[in-house]
Amino acid sequence: MVIGEGYINLTQARISRNLSPGQTVKDVVDAIVDNMPGVARGPIVGTNLNSPIIHGWRLNSNTAAVQTYDNRMKDVQDAVFVPGLAPFTVSQNQMNNLTLGSDPNDLLIVHNVGTGQETHLTLKADGNAEVQSQFTVKVIGKDIELTASNSLTLSAQQMNINVSQANWTGSYTMIGEARFNGVLFDTHFHNGVTPGAGNSGPVAG
């Protein structure tokens, strides 16, 4: 901090003093300013100047760590994520090394950067969300619901469904072959067909 002729005093003054609970924020400011000889102080204005000090305020003259009062509003066992800041050159290199690629405008959680095991969880700038993996993505739970207000699309080379009972509500349209116990639906025929109201025989092929 540079303030006119007070530059030398401001950078070399050392303060050693304790301010006790009950004193105000203004008392702290005054204690600092009083230890800056040769600096002409103007009026000090602020909305919280008269707020009392609750747990004391130590002005330390050495480099020892100062233990602050723990006034957190969370449980000590809560998981808290504090993001770190990296130089832009480092961040840019990380983006360039992504195997699965990414948009710098997206919010990205990534593991195994630049490897064959890279995995992404992306909140995209356009409002979409993506999970990307070069291996298996599993969703495990007692009950799992997929709800889409518009449409639900599944795309794969093969789909395997293994459930004890499947219930469908609504109509469906199918393009392709359908088989029941190995018999094609659209080309099968029955034997024992008789005119009138009789029943045909079983499926013959």
Rank of each mutant, 00 (worst) to 15 (best):
L154K: 06
E145N: 10
N167C: 07
A166K: 05
A178C: 05
G182D: 07
T173G: 05
N150I: 09
V163W: 09
Q158I: 04
F185H: 03
N150T: 09
E145K: 14
A178H: 09
T169C: 02
S171F: 05
Q157M: 01
E145W: 07
L146R: 00
N162M: 04
S171R: 12
Y172N: 09
L184Q: 06
T169I: 08
N160D: 06
F180L: 15
W168H: 07
M159T: 06
A156F: 03
F185K: 11
N181G: 14
I161N: 05
T173E: 02
R179H: 11
L184Y: 14
E145R: 09
A148D: 08
G176V: 04
E177G: 15
Y172S: 15
A166S: 10
V183D: 08
Q158R: 06
A148Y: 02
N150L: 05
N181Q: 12
N167H: 10
S155V: 13
S149H: 03
R179P: 01
S171T: 13
N160Y: 10
G176L: 03
M174Q: 13
A156R: 04
N181T: 13
I175F: 06
M159A: 11
V183W: 07
T147H: 09
N160S: 13
L184V: 11
G176A: 01
Y172L: 15
R179D: 03
F185T: 14
L152K: 10
L184W: 11
R179N: 13
G182R: 03
A148F: 00
T153N: 14
T169R: 15
L146H: 10
S171N: 14
Q158L: 02
N150H: 09
F185I: 10
N162C: 07
Y172C: 13
F180M: 10
L152A: 14
G182Y: 02
S155P: 04
S149Y: 00
G176Q: 04
S164P: 04
F180A: 09
N160W: 04
A156D: 04
A148R: 02
Q157K: 07
N160G: 05
R179Y: 15
M174I: 09
V163R: 12
R179I: 05
M174S: 03
F185W: 07
Q157W: 01
V163N: 07
N150Q: 12
I161M: 11
L184P: 00
N167T: 12
T169A: 15
F180S: 06
I175H: 05
G182V: 07
S151D: 12
Q165I: 07
T169Q: 15
N160K: 05
L146T: 12
I175E: 08
Q158F: 03
V163F: 11
Q157A: 08
A166R: 01
S149W: 00
Q158W: 01
Q158Y: 06
G182I: 00
M174D: 07
T173M: 01
L184T: 12
E177Q: 15
N181Y: 03
N162L: 09
T153K: 09
